[in-house]
Nucleic acid binder design. Structure first.
Lengths: 195, 195
DNA sequence: CGGTCTCTTGACGGAGTTCAAAGCTAGTGG
DNA sequence: CCACTAGCTTTGAACTCCGTCAAGAGACCG
């Protein structure tokens, strides 16, 4: 049970956990299930959990003043997702997290997160590395958004995340890339023509 | 000495450090000075330090295939800067860090970073929070880049970072915002007209 | 003061948006 | 199991924001 979580942690900190240490951590997490289109977090409410995806797919987005949604992150099996600012500061979340498929997650609350880190400092390290990887990749995405055209960004994305392209609707991928669905459709059409 | 660093750490982890703990940490850092236009890290070489800015200003950028530079981060007094991916993985850096003014920094090497975290787990926590804050703000910048027009991004930026607007050349701010200097000039002209 | 770097301004062009409408697809209920 | 609907994708035409090219004005430094 929760083998994927254990693997995820051990791979991240690059060392094995004792059975006891892992069991202790796992006790601090609760399993939850969601239907398709359910919200894990809603903008405006406080985000009390960090989620590890066991099965299914979801994504986070920001809603702008005109009511348009802008995809921020996708999460499939083995990914973590949350609104970290809200989680750590208890401020209102600015992002909403919505499922794309029926979802099974392991959730850790703020209090239990604190406990986990206090019990065993390797979890401070684990979350540091997790967030560090997320930071590095978001920073890269930002600089690419500022320096590359949409077409190139799309091909880099589909090379890096073929699984996302399979399972996530095109209009959300467009949003994630910072373009409109019409534009992505044209990019794909044009690239099909070339070949 | 290094009071600003101590304040920075204590504010971040939200508790005071013992003199001994801080001294121990400080011993792991070395003070370095740079002239204006010096490079702290160069794209293609391995980044071996994380830098804490004591005095001066610098910024990181990515150079694209056409040789154009894209500003990624600015750092003034009290900020930390590095190429984290290169630092942690020992891979070649993709960013260059260049001073904008004569610079005084405290630098921590990879080995000493490891020691600091091993000696005192509050540094694992410190760097987790530091990177977490950076992550939250870069993610926000990205979604704003994808959802707001350049004019609005510029005003949000100048409201949030009036000190940057004072000390950093306009063409670099433009680059940071993902637009050309000409466009930023026109945005500023237009806003002056309105008032 | 001369040269280089930065900022401004103008005219034009192009990547991506907007608006609109028509296919297409998948999920739902009869 | 099929029909219907809602949501997704595609396509076209006009438009817009920002980029590109070019040139000149201003600022800074040796």
């Amino acid at each position: 049970m929760a083998a994927s979580l254990r693997k995820n942690i051990e791979k991240t900190i690059n060392k094995t956990l004792s059975d006891a240490a892992f069991e202790e951590f796992l006790k601090l997490m609760s399993e939850k299930s969601f239907e398709k289109k359910d919200l894990l977090i809603e903008e405006g409410s406080v985000c009390n959990y960090i989620y590890f995806i066991e099965q299914g797919a979801c994504y986070s987005y920001l809603t702008d003043q005109r009511g348009e949604k802008h995809a921020v992150q996708f999460a499939l099996e083995g990914y973590w997702i949350s609104d970290l600012y809200s989680f750590f500061s208890k401020a209102k979340a600015i992002y909403t997290i919505e499922t794309l498929e029926p979802l099974k997650v392991l959730a850790i609350s703020r209090e239990n997160f604190q406990k986990a880190c206090d019990n065993n400092s390797c979890f401070d390290r684990f979350f540091r590395i997790l967030i560090q990887n997320a930071y590095v990749s978001v920073q890269y995405r930002l600089v690419k958004t500022n320096s590359e055209e949409a077409e190139k960004r799309y091909f880099e994305f589909s090379k890096l995340h073929p699984d996302f392209v399979q399972r996530i609707p095109q209009y959300l991928i467009a949003s994630y890339l910072g373009i409109k669905p019409q534009s992505l459709s044209r990019i794909r059409k044009e690239s099909a023509r070339k070949k």
